[in-house]
Design a protein around this nucleic acid. Structure first.
Lengths: 209, 209
DNA sequence: TTATGTGAACGCATTCACAGCC
DNA sequence: GGCTGTGAATGCGTTCACATAA
């Protein structure tokens, strides 16, 4: 849809704007200005307008934006008008927390499968799903294609699991393993590296005056 | 220590380099080149050298870097030579998962307190700690200062809790709440917004050809 | 000869400033 | 008059290319 490639930072902000818009909507507001959106997100009105301008002209000059309409537009842009079929691989502490995470379901990310390689966990029922062997992933995906695999296994196992996910034909991956993963270019990978985030905080705390 | 402000992206990469260096160290290697570090991290050798150059000249021309020495340097730069006293606020699913997270302890982030506002949870023992009321935070911090508060409460409660944390005098915050938080400028805040990361993935998946 | 360290060139995201429209 | 939309200017991180040192 957008003409040129959109910066990562822009997409992140769109996600913020969407949240603010939903709050405005719940508060019953019908109109919002770039200035108001900027104030909430700790950015500038010019930034907001520029971000939106990559996707079209959604506002009215002298007036602002229609909250309902802009909310809808943001949802469409971010690909949130559809449901995403998600499997979680690794049902340890983090995997289990994610499986129950309300934020998933709310945004249309439907957890449709749990996988693990620990035979003690395979077959167990968790949150209305049976934990299955990672080895079953390829067959399962053939029957009912999966959009996103969430990787929540220990670091040493992560690359191996990712290779299995890729081999199974799943092309969207969200990883919580604290390592750098490698995937083919037709697979989209997004990593949340908690260790890195902690160290970033540690750096910031160590270097302020 | 560094002369100019260091870019966020640089600090993130330093964190990656550290992990690779530790792997090289475990593998018994004594020397590493910027080229080798770059290959692992999916970046370029020039990038690696530039990143390091902000902090000093750690290598030998024609030779590369001493693994042991560079590892030590990275640790010092990232502030990982000391221990950090961490409290986790909100012992729901995510908080509980974090409390047990090995990556914390491994890097010197010692969880020294658990807090919640749910009276059903206060007083309960979890992982060798007693869950305490958030209201006790200020007193507790006076007795034994805390470096970092990890916020793992639901979004609607997050800003209120952060205000309490700030009022208690804690100046390092790591938040997992999926909202934009506001803190005074003398408080360092780092947010991991899972909802945003999911939407970023959704965007990427929706817009590939 | 090999690989670092770094000023200079480049490219891209943010900010500015104002024309355009309500 | 008020606020959007957007080229132009700016600032900043990345890449280049080479002088420098082992």
């Amino acid at each position: 849809m957008p003409l040129k490639r959109i910066a990562d930072s822009t997409v992140r902000r769109l996600s913020l704007y969407l949240r603010f818009l939903e709050e405005f909507e719940n508060a019953g507001l019908t109109t919002v200005s770039s200035e108001e959106l900027a104030a909430r997100g700790g950015t500038t009105s010019a930034q907001v307008r520029k971000d939106l301008s990559f996707f079209g002209s959604f506002g009215k000059r002298g007036l602002g934006y229609q909250v309902g309409e802009l909310t809808q537009r943001m949802r469409r842009i971010l690909g949130l008008e559809r449901d995403w079929r998600v499997v979680i691989i690794g049902v340890g502490k983090i995997g289990a927390a994610l499986a129950q995470y309300e934020g998933f379901r709310q945004r249309g990310f439907r957890v449709v499968g749990l996988y693990d390689s620990d035979s003690a966990k395979i077959g167990r029922e968790m949150y209305d799903l049976y934990v299955r062997s990672v080895d079953a992933l390829a067959d399962d995906n053939r029957e009912q294609p999966v959009d996103i695999a969430v990787i929540a296994v220990p670091a040493p196992a992560a690359q191996r699991v990712v290779d299995q996910v890729v081999a199974a034909g799943i092309t969207g991956i969200m990883s919580f393993a604290p390592i750098q993963l490698h995937v083919p270019s037709d697979v989209t990978l997004n990593t949340v590296n908690m260790a890195m985030e902690l160290e970033r905080l540690s750096y910031a705390l160590s270097n302020r005056e």
